[in-house]
Amino acid sequence: MGARLFRVLAVPVILILLWQGFSMLGYVRPAILPSPVAIIERLWLYLLPGQSFAESTGVLDWLQSSELLSDMFASLHRVVLGFVVGAGLALPLGLLMGTDRRVEGLLDPLVQFLRPIPPIAYIPLAILWFGLGDPPAIFLIAIGAFFPVLINTITGVRNVDSIYVRAATNLGAGRMTMFRRVILPAATPYILTGMRIGIGTAFIVVIVAEMIAVNSGLGYRILEAREYLWSDKVIAGMIAIGTLGLAIDVGVNRLNNHLLRWHRGIES
């Protein structure tokens, strides 16, 4: 245990110590690259609630008064909303395109054309169409989440082993049963992979969207810190993004493992 912990932490700790050393010796200007200690101090200030805890307003308000937590909450809120919109549209469309060759034939060229366009490229149009604030941000995030979910859902449905379909037909399954109880569950490993990628993309897009269209969230805060040349706060914001992204991925992964506990590849 101790040896493993050492292996995991050795390189980061050495790098941080070197970094701190160079900073203290004055080799690097704090505005260019602040020292680790300065960043941690800044992160702490960023996290600290602005108001003191009061019984009357409750814990939630107190936590909300922390700039970091309220930024994280704002970003997460947008990711979830955008993801729900994007994946919510992609899933039924993907199921339809996966099952019906004609629909796929009609829509696939358009999908293949639109797919490589990064969501960022929609920013001017998003602002033109939706103005400023949450709507353009959610639009961009939805686009980011839409394509991974769509493509993986189509692939998932397409890859359903025909033997399951034959077995279910033999047992008397009609169209609805076949779809709901055979094709959908058989495609879930792909669909969930798509959702995981989609959430990741949504998280990248939310940061960019917040740098442009809104005035809250982690992306906005980083840009704001840049205006004041607060490099330490920029890095503190980056650390917050990394932590939140990791937490989301771990959470989604846990959920996937639970939903796919029947799947061969996963050992429980």
Partner: peptide, 27 residues
Amino acid sequence: PGPDRGMVFQEYALFPWMTVEQNVAFG
């Protein structure tokens, strides 16, 4: 195909997302 002619496949063709009892109950 019809349930009057029950088919048993070499590759089993069990639904892997269903437990044993769910598989048996399906039909």
